[in-house]
C-alpha cells in the first residue's frame, strides 16, 4: 500500500464504539496518527487547527451531520482538497448521489469490514 501511513487521519462519529472500531482497523492498516471528533462542528474545528490527510466520517450526527461537514469542507479553500470518505448506514441511492455531488471521495455502507475500509482508502489515493 503506497498510501502515506504517517498522515493524520480524522475519524468523525457520534458513537465511541464505531470510533474505536475504525481506529483499530486503521491501526491494523498501519496508520498511527488518528484523531476523532463526535460531530461535524467538532471535526471542522479540528481540521482548522491541524491538516489531516484523510477524513472518515459518519453521516447522521448532531448538531452538524457528516453531509454538512463535507459541504463545509469543500467550500473552505484551505480544506477543500482533503480526501473524504463517508462511512454510514445511510444506504439510499439519493444519499450516495448527494454525497458524490457534494464531493465525497468514496462511500462505505455500514456494516463494513476491514477489507472494504482498506480498499476504499487505497482507491481514494489512487493505488
Amino acid at each position: 500500500m503506497a498510501v502515506d501511513l504517517t498522515m493524520p487521519v480524522l475519524v468523525v462519529d457520534d458513537y465511541n464504539t464505531m470510533i474505536r472500531i475504525i481506529r483499530n482497523l486503521l491501526k491494523q492498516i498501519g496508520f498511527q496518527d488518528i484523531d476523532d471528533a463526535a460531530d461535524g462542528t467538532a471535526a471542522l474545528g479540528k481540521m482548522r487547527e491541524k491538516r489531516y490527510g484523510l477524513v472518515i466520517s459518519d453521516w447522521n450526527m448532531e448538531p452538524m451531520t457528516g453531509y454538512e461537514l463535507l459541504k463545509e469542507v469543500r467550500l473552505d479553500p484551505g480544506l477543500s482538497k482533503t480526501p473524504f470518505i463517508m462511512v454510514t448506514a445511510e444506504s439510499k441511492t439519493e444519499n450516495v448521489i448527494a454525497a458524490k455531488k457534494a464531493g465525497v471521495n468514496n462511500y462505505i455502507v455500514k456494516p463494513f469490514n476491514a477489507q472494504t475500509l482498506q480498499s476504499k482508502i487505497e482507491a481514494v489515493f489512487g493505488d
Binding site: 453531509y67 448506514a89 445511510e90 444506504s91 439510499k92 441511492t93 444519499n95 455502507v109 463494513f112
Partner: peptide, 14 residues
Amino acid sequence: LLNGPQLNGPETSQ
C-alpha cells in the same frame, strides 16, 4: 437526507 438504516439491510449494496 437523514433516512437512517433500512429495515431489510442496505437499500444500495456496497
